[in-house]
Write a protein that binds this DNA or RNA. Structure first.
Lengths: 204, 204
DNA sequence: AAAATATCTTGAACGCCGTTCATTTTTGCC
DNA sequence: GGCAAAAATGAACGGCGTTCAAGATATTTT
């Protein structure tokens, strides 16, 4: 087997991502320490820099995993064929809220992590964020048949961002965030209002 | 004049906040360095820790200033007496977007800065965030006369957070954020949809 | 199979950072 | 002017991400 080296390399990377994921889930991505992850992964400090460029890259791999799980969650949100466009929107939003609540710090890491000044998020990772808006296009198209593809894509981003904002401020515990106990119903009310408003707009 | 010492103390604090504000506006709050601010403020490194508890407290004072300016901006958004509830909402949102764009990193600092694990934002600073939602209560009450004060306050937070989410993802340059060129119109469309949707809901 | 080469592993060391502290200087009061 | 309290100073400390020279290990070549 000529892939012994590749296997070990892949295994180390996996162990490091596992350890980083656990640390982030427990303490948040701002508290991720190189010495703590390598100790937990069972390797030397320097080994981290053979496996990844730097700590930021490691965080991006954790975020990549989280996005993948979130994508599956949103996929599974699709209700039956006779569901209305609003039903689909509500299901997507509810699953989004649920995932965010159950994976609070990992989910927050998706949006709090920023590479240091100067460099920006690499393309392979940027693209992975598409799962956040994929499911919105179809129901939105039913609500707004008057919009072209470009405007639909734009409006899907806006719709996602609106829900996202409510969840983010709430889960960050900000003063202006809604209390966690009201999060589901407030998001539901927002989706309801946006949906009805969008439907109205399509009739003008 | 027995207040010479107090004056000097206040002056140093002001110089430090000025310097920190400039640094944050230029490089973001994550790049704020104690040595850089003290050098720019014209004092020794240690003097910072006579004036403030730590760097986080200094950032909160910068954010305090920014919130104050933002509050004035939102105050000035109030349109004439014959404006509809949606007009008021649109004006608030437009001013919010404008402020955020013109003060990008200072505005982002309001929501990106988090004290280290364990301690949380002091009450005097949490309260200052109220300006973000103050102006929303009145027009929302006109749209939803059926809601009680508690639910109105909750819905005001949700409405703010929705707009906020769109602006945040856009100004952070996130993959799922809308392009800056479309920000105004997308926020406007969102406010329009939320407003119409809220009005419909009040009739049920 | 042995030698040669490429790769990985390791932890000490480097430079930067926030924060502290002993020391010196300044201030307010009698 | 003398004295106590407060503030200013910058060297020093501990923790951090990252690098690197040295040694260990795996792969290829002969």
């Amino acid at each position: 087997m000529g892939n012994n080296r590749d296997e070990k390399r892949a295994d180390l990377r996996k162990r490091l991502i596992d350890a980083a994921e656990e640390q982030i889930a427990k303490h948040g991505c701002a508290s991720l320490k190189a010495r703590a992850v390598t100790a937990q992964a069972g390797c030397a400090l320097g080994a981290l820099y053979n496996a990844f460029d730097d700590l930021d890259t490691l965080i991006m791999h954790v975020n990549s995993r989280t996005l993948s799980r979130l994508g599956e969650t949103l996929q599974s949100a699709r209700p039956g064929p006779e569901a209305t466009a609003e039903d689909v929107m509500q299901a997507l939003a509810a699953h989004y809220v649920e995932f965010a609540c159950k994976n609070r710090l990992l989910w927050i890491s998706l949006f709090e992590h920023r590479p240091p000044e100067g460099q920006d998020i690499p393309d392979w990772h940027r693209q992975e964020h598409a799962v956040l808006i994929m499911g919105i296009m179809a129901p939105l198209k039913r609500l707004r048949p008057d919009l072209n593809e470009t405007d639909l894509a734009l409006r899907a981003r806006t719709t996602f961002a609106a829900v996202h904002g409510v969840v983010l401020l709430a889960l960050q515990g900000r003063f202006v965030g809604v209390p966690l106990a009201s999060l589901y119903q407030e998001v539901s009310a927002l989706v309801s209002a946006m949906t009805r408003g969008a439907h109205l707009a399509s009739e003008n």
